[in-house]
């Protein structure tokens, strides 16, 4: 029983916040020009091509703040050869997607399923979750079009109430009521230290989060 990750999307189909916990494969940093907003998650933000191409970000603080462990600089235009100490990382991440692509895939799946459920039911019925052999995805859509998407262990019960609490608590307190966070700006996410800390505390305190 565990929770893997949380994505928040705005009504313009863009990811405004991302947070992960027990993920096996970290997403690769997003491509530059992939359309990812600033302030979504420091760890997956596009890395500038001038410094540290392909350096593997390591996350060691519980809040997912990024700290680079290598100072290697690869000149622009040179083929990026994985450095010896990174080979292991690179292999384990070989089929991982860059974050911007992953975020688009998640959004696409969620929207398609939501439309399919609406169409099939013939009334405005909401898509709530799906399950595969490895994980379960839950969706909560707010009236303002924000979508909370949570990935958890396949055996967890529905987590909509958790996302509802996340919305009523940290999201309202540290994003909506925060004058420094531009909501609906179409260029910036809602990530800030307080929101991240409050979300982290809340999720880690849940019984479904596990040890």
């Amino acid at each position: 029983m565990t929770i893997y990750s949380l994505y928040i999307y705005d009504r313009h189909c863009a990811c405004v916040y991302y947070h992960d916990w027990h993920r096996a494969k970290r997403p690769k940093p997003a491509n530059e020009g992939g359309g990812l907003y600033n302030a979504v998650n420091r760890g997956v933000a596009p890395q500038s091509s001038e410094s540290s191409v392909q350096t593997t970000p390591t996350f060691n603080s519980p809040r997912n703040t990024l700290s680079l462990n290598t100072g290697h600089v690869v000149a622009v235009g040179e083929p990026t050869t994985p450095l010896p100490q990174q080979t292991e990382h690179e292999v384990s991440k070989s089929n991982a997607l860059p974050f911007d692509e992953e975020a688009k895939l998640v959004y696409g799946v969620v929207i398609s399923l939501r439309n399919m459920v609406k169409k099939l039911s013939g009334r405005d019925e909401l898509f709530t979750s799906y399950r595969t052999s490895a994980y379960r995805l839950h969706l909560l859509e707010t009236v303002s079009g924000y979508k909370f998407v949570m990935l958890s262990d396949p055996n967890t019960d529905n987590l909509r109430f958790v996302m509802r609490q996340l919305y009523n608590g940290p999201f309202i307190d540290y994003a909506v009521r925060n004058p420094l966070v531009p909501m609906d700006s179409r260029e910036q996410g809602i990530d800030n230290d307080y929101f991240r800390a409050a979300t982290d505390r809340f999720i880690r305190g849940l019984s479904v989060f596990g040890p």
Binding site: Y4, L105, G108, L120, L126, S133, Y135, L137, L151
Partner: peptide, 22 residues
């Protein structure tokens, strides 16, 4: 697509159960 976006270790199947409200 659902088998591609798995956050867990190892490979995942595609969606097995999709739930609406009713």
């Amino acid at each position: 697509i659902t088998s591609r976006i798995s956050p867990a270790a190892g490979s995942s199947s595609g969606a097995q159960v999709i739930e609406g409200e009713t």
